[in-house]
Amino acid sequence: MTNKEERDNHRPSINPVLAHLEAIATGIKWLTRKPMTLMYPDMEEKKPEYFRGFIIFNYNKCIGCSLCAQICPPRAIHMYRVPGDKRIRPGYDAGRCIHCGLCTDICPTDALDVSPVHDEVFEQIGSMDFDPVEWHIISKKLVEEHAKRKRKLVITRVDEEVGLRYEPVE
């Protein structure tokens, strides 16, 4: 694609007047096109499969192997002792999490999984640190709330005219 001749005269001198007119014409051409912005708080993008958002935890499936805490790159997962439970269980600091999803990959029982929840707001730093039981509860709550959101849900598609377009999904 980049053969020698093309490379040697790749910078042809331009006609200043024509180039000015061409630039303005291009501007006017794009003035009529639609924007590619996702109007985010009003509509929400349906995330692709296995999108790595908030990590959700199922306490009942956990076997307490602590592999997730070992692989977690920012040490967002720590193992806790839960009263009345012989095994140690993972707790989660959402403020430290980088959403790499390695913990869900190494979990041998699918107790951990990725979720499309990525924009949950916590008002205090302390409230982002969950012990195992809290993590189980908040995971359930977040997933349920996410399914019930009333925003318009759209799916992102690549468009040949304007780059990206957003199709409503049912």
Partner: peptide, 27 residues
């Protein structure tokens, strides 16, 4: 999706040339 993105981008690159690369001010 990629093939669509490719066609879009190749077309857009022509506009990049007109708007930016061959724009006399930018030159």
């Amino acid at each position: 999706e990629f093939l669509k993105a490719k066609r879009y981008m190749l077309r857009k690159l022509k506009d990049y040339d007109k708007m930016f690369f061959n724009n006399p001010v930018i030159r």
